[in-house]
């Protein structure tokens, strides 16, 4: 400890040193806000999975129970939830492939590094194709 350290302590007069609060830390920087928005999508992901699981449970209880669940899906509250969930999932898709260049190992093709923009574009394109394929399959068999 240097002399300046002990001087500082004497000047502080034994009072507790100021410690910057961590409350609301994530609101301090747009980068932190984006990080929190990305993490918060998990709440809707969990809620949606639980809605599906509950439907599966009601299905196991017979037609009357299942129809009750289906009827609940037609309520305005359910519609509002699923519209919000849809927006959240689209944001999840967008953010997932935006951070993918940072979370995956560096990729080389033909001796050159694949650019982060190319990885993001490929991921988003794959998501669009997969969503259309899933919807197409359901549309065909429904």
């Amino acid at each position: 400890m240097s002399a300046t350290g002990s001087d500082a302590r004497r000047h502080a007069g034994g009072r507790r040193p100021y410690v910057r609060s961590m409350d609301g830390w994530w609101k301090r920087d747009p980068y932190f806000i984006r990080y929190m928005a990305r993490e918060a999508t998990a709440i809707f992901v969990a809620a949606y999975a639980i809605v599906l699981l509950f439907g599966l449970y009601r299905l196991s209880q017979g037609p009357a129970a299942y129809d009750g669940w289906l009827q609940a899906l037609k309520s305005p509250l359910s519609l509002a939830f699923h519209l919000a969930a849809l927006a959240t999932f689209v944001y999840h898709t967008w953010s997932w492939f935006n951070i993918m260049p940072k979370t995956m190992p560096i990729l080389f093709a033909g001796g050159k590094r694949v650019t982060p923009a190319a990885i993001t574009s490929a991921g988003l394109a794959a998501a669009i194709v997969m969503c259309l394929v899933i919807f197409g399959i359901v549309w065909r068999i429904a």
């Binding site: 519609l79 699923h82 999932f89 999840h92 898709t93 997932w96 794959a126 899933i134």
Partner: peptide, 25 residues
């Protein structure tokens, strides 16, 4: 996360909006 990113939007749209309300399905 990958599964949700690839097909999540389609699943939510199908089970939460399109099928219950008869939109496009």
């Amino acid at each position: 996360g990958m599964l949700a990113a690839l097909i999540g939007p389609a699943l939510v749209f199908i089970t939460g909006i399109a099928a219950p309300f008869g939109v496009l399905l």
